[in-house]
């Protein structure tokens, strides 16, 4: 099997463990320490930010413009609208600038 398939299978097992694990493990505790819960709550925003920030930092004018427009649109509307408008700005910028 290729490395890619191994990565996929390992990710699948870990994802399944996260979906069954909360029920099997977390439900046995009456309460979670507030600081642990606060840091768990921070995980998605913290991880996803690390995939945005360096890409934006290294982006050219088209990429920066797409990010700024997407952020403004995203503040007022849903993910889909923001994504479509951000992609449109990016494609326009790359082909026109």
């Amino acid at each position: 099997m290729t490395t890619t398939v191994w990565i996929i299978l390992a990710s699948a097992v870990l994802t399944y463990l996260s979906r069954i694990g909360g029920h099997l493990v977390l439900s046995r505790f009456d309460r979670i320490h507030p600081r642990v819960e606060a840091s768990l709550n921070a995980v998605p925003a913290a991880v996803l930010t690390t995939l945005v920030a360096p890409a934006a930092y290294h982006g050219g004018p088209a990429e920066i413009a797409a990010m700024i427009v997407a952020a403004i649109v995203g503040w007022h509307s849903g993910l889909m609208t923001m994504f479509v408008i951000g992609a449109a700005v990016l494609i326009a910028g790359r082909n026109l600038l």
Binding site: P44, A45, L48, T49, L51, V52, A55, A56, G59, E63, A66, M67, A70, A71, G74, W75, L79, M82, F83, G86, A87, L90
Partner: peptide, 9 residues
């Protein structure tokens, strides 16, 4: 990155 920005938001 644009999609991830949307998820962050």
């Amino acid at each position: 990155p644009i999609y991830f920005l949307g998820l962050v938001m």
